[in-house]
């Protein structure tokens, strides 16, 4: 068990949540692929295990943000869908309920092909995600 009380392993049925600070990361239909593209420094994508409850999303955001950005929306996806896209969700605390989407393709010799592969995965996750406006 983790300090937050959550299990060490993120279950397939758990919903993971990506905080969105840019209105250009979603439209009226869905989150965009860019919302799930991995960070090149950490090589993963930071998410929280908090589902689609707006109150819980705001609570975790306020605990972890430096308040330089405004939280505008959140993209919520079942962990099983993320795994089906070819990447994994690994718990990473602290902070509480934090996890990372890991296992993205990295091709040192061809950064653009690497990016194209990542984009396809990000597009699949975005397609399977629900948008929560905050």
């Amino acid at each position: 068990m983790l300090p937050s009380g959550l299990p060490n392993i993120v279950g397939d049925d758990e919903e993971i949540t990506r905080f969105l600070t840019q209105s250009s990361h979603y439209n009226s239909a869905m989150p965009k692929p860019a919302a799930f593209m991995p960070d090149p420094k950490s090589r993963n994508k930071s998410v929280f295990r908090c589902g689609a409850d707006p109150e819980r999303i705001r609570e975790l955001w306020e605990k972890t943000t430096n308040f330089q950005q405004t939280l505008k929306a959140a993209a919520v996806c079942k962990t099983a869908e993320v795994r089906n896209a070819g990447v994994d969700v690994i718990a990473s605390e602290p902070p509480d309920a934090h996890a990372n989407i890991e296992g993205w393709p990295w091709l040192v010799n061809d950064p653009e092909l690497q990016k194209a592969k990542q984009k396809e995965i990000a597009a699949v996750i975005a397609q399977k995600s629900a948008l929560v406006m905050l």
Partner: peptide, 9 residues
């Protein structure tokens, strides 16, 4: 849309 590596989607 902006991407985390500084690119534009």
């Amino acid at each position: 849309a902006p991407e985390p590596d500084g690119s534009i989607s």
